[in-house]
Simulated assay, not measured.
Amino acid sequence: MRLAVEQAVFCVGTRTILDAVTLGVGAGEFVGLVGPNGAGKTTLLRLLAGLIAPSAGRVTLDGRPLGSVSRDERARRVAAFFQGAGIGWPMRVREIVALGRLPHHRAFAAEDAVDRAAIARAMDLTDTTHLADRTEPTLASGERMRVLLARALAVESEMLLADEPITALDPAHQLDAMALLRRVSRDGAGVIAVLHDLTLAARYCDRLVVLSEGRIVADAQPTAALDDSLLHAVFGVSAQRGTHADGGAYILPWARSQRTLGETRP
């Protein structure tokens, strides 16, 4: 499976949000979308999900224009959840997660054993089983995020799109969520996640795609994508780097860096 955008442009009025963006992600890849606020990360994810159409360029699924793929097929093959998405009414958590199975059924069809197993698996992986009988309004923000992730995982799709999946989570659940997304990719699905924590993004992702002012300015393995010059020019920070005892390299944004007057981003 391959989900891609080719020379995609997205405009709102006279403002260009994405400018000639080309990106492809295949099965088994965990790709992080990073960049400053307003860089176009969530807009790019929405294009990939088929929620909005590009002003120019195209979005493809296995080489087919995404718009030509039926809604049912897209729902089965590409699962997504977005920051700030609400449930809309006071459903119980298990019912919310079960919504992820709808693409696999005709309308009003009853759950079968496969559905029940997928729902239970998704809730176990996201540490939400104990929340099963709680209603959505009673959830804390971090609990709600994990429930939405469980709903997306219950689809058991070939591609998972996640918008800020670790926002509002405590440190332990942030680590759990990132490890889970990497596991999903290792099991064969493609994963594309919008992330703000550069340390965790660099640690867990296979590739980082850096956006700045609507353009991709880097697309590489994490240490190559987040080199010192890019951190300075795009994020306005310097970083500490090191190697953990387990051999893994880490990047820790440490201080603001001062841009030279008139300096432009890459």
Rank of each mutant, 00 (worst) to 15 (best):
L48P: 01
L230H: 07
L200M: 13
L61V: 00
Q7F: 01
P137E: 11
A150Q: 05
V237E: 10
L48N: 02
D19V: 02
D133F: 12
S157V: 00
D19P: 04
P266K: 03
V78S: 02
A75C: 13
R151H: 02
A98N: 06
V184M: 07
N37T: 12
S229P: 09
L33Y: 02
I96N: 04
Y250S: 01
V69S: 14
C11S: 15
D62K: 08
V97L: 04
A224T: 14
M1D: 06
T42D: 13
R94C: 04
V21Q: 10
D127K: 06
A120G: 14
S141P: 03
A255L: 10
A168R: 06
R151K: 13
E158Y: 06
L66D: 08
A172W: 11
V147W: 01
T126L: 00
G26K: 10
I251A: 00
D176E: 11
L208D: 08
L102H: 10
V155I: 10
R94L: 04
T126Q: 05
G262F: 13
A85R: 01
D228Y: 03
Y250C: 09
I119V: 11
R265A: 10
V9R: 14
R46C: 04
L252D: 03
I251Q: 02
G100T: 02
A118I: 06
S185N: 03
A162T: 12
V12T: 12
A193Q: 11
R15D: 08
R116T: 15
Q7G: 12
L231V: 04
G242A: 07
Q221G: 13
G40D: 13
G86P: 06
L3W: 12
D197I: 07
A154V: 14
R144L: 14
D124F: 11
L48C: 01
D219N: 15
A8M: 05
D219K: 09
L160M: 05
P54I: 13
D206K: 04
R2F: 05
L252S: 10
L231A: 06
G248R: 02
P36W: 12
A107W: 07
D124V: 07
P65H: 15
V237W: 05
L61K: 07
T128H: 07
A56C: 13
D115V: 01
L211I: 14
M91L: 14
V97T: 06
F10Y: 08
A168Q: 09
I216S: 06
E164C: 05
G13T: 09
L139G: 02
A117P: 06
E95S: 11
T22Y: 02
N37Y: 15
D228R: 07
Q221R: 15
T167M: 10
M145I: 08
A245L: 00
G13R: 08
A49L: 10
A220R: 11
D206H: 14
A225R: 03
P171I: 10
I251V: 15
S55H: 02
T43V: 14
H196K: 00
A150D: 11
M159Q: 04
